[in-house]
Design a protein around this nucleic acid. Sequence first.
DNA 1: AAGAGGCCCTGATAGC
DNA 2: TGCTATCAGGGCCTCT
Length: 287
Amino acid sequence: MPELPEIEIVKQSLYKNIKFKKIKKIIVKNRNLRFKLASNFKNILNNKKIVNISRFSKYIIINLENSYFCIFHLGMSGTIHIVKKNNKNLITNVSFYNSPLIPKKHNHIEFFFNNLKVIYNDPRRFGFFKIFSSQRKLFNYFNRYGPEPFDKKFNINYLKKKLKGKSKNIKNYLLDQKFVSGIGNIYANEILFFCKINPSLESKKLSLENYKKLIYYSKYILISAIKKGGSTIKNFTNTNGKLGSFQKNFNVYQRENLKCLIKNCCGIIKKKKISNRSTFYCNMCQK
DNA sequence: AAGAGGCCCTGATAGC
DNA sequence: TGCTATCAGGGCCTCT
């Protein structure tokens, strides 16, 4: 479900609600995720204070007081719910990226804090948790990933080096986390629209001007999405029960057969499959 | 070695 | 109503 902007919103909400709090109790209801939950998961996290919460790419990073790190990925359908205690009753309308009600099925893990609990829910089980015993091991794991678009390393020389002579299309590169991390299918489509680059274009055919646009617009789109609270496709709400609104700004994603929104462009948004992922583009601006 | 494709899952929706 | 097919915001693994 989520790409970098949505994970950033989740991170901000967790940061606000559970940083410096101690995990009082953990209930594991279903260990089956993309990777089976580690057998020592509860032991390592239970009764530990959370020292920091951060994000890299589409991962949330939880830094524990015992210098362990717990990271998780939401896959396609993972959601986080924060349930606050209000007198005797639980309020259920504080949730991230899901309906205001706590889902009944697929709640895999519950983390209890003093006045609230955090639920990890994931119907499709593409998400996962991992634990690292030191920062070095955590960095080592993230080493496999390319820079985020915001990273200084994501510059013209880097693009040149990586894309020179490559026949793979540019959209697949944007989705390739080893090339650049944090971009998913929605934002890859939107970024290429702003760059006026056809998603099927072989990467070796990109011009210097294209490189500059890719660097500029990948930052621009992700930041705009974060400012709007992320994209909300299925009535998902964020931290305060509010809907993210970036989906109202989609130019191509899910706009098949509609008119291009660029003034004076008479193009139509087309849909095609690239590597089995839906791809949307304007047949005029992105020739 | 690069690149395409299959696969891991459940649930919502469209079409017959 | 009830079946089947298709699609979904991801990414790892295998095969050529």
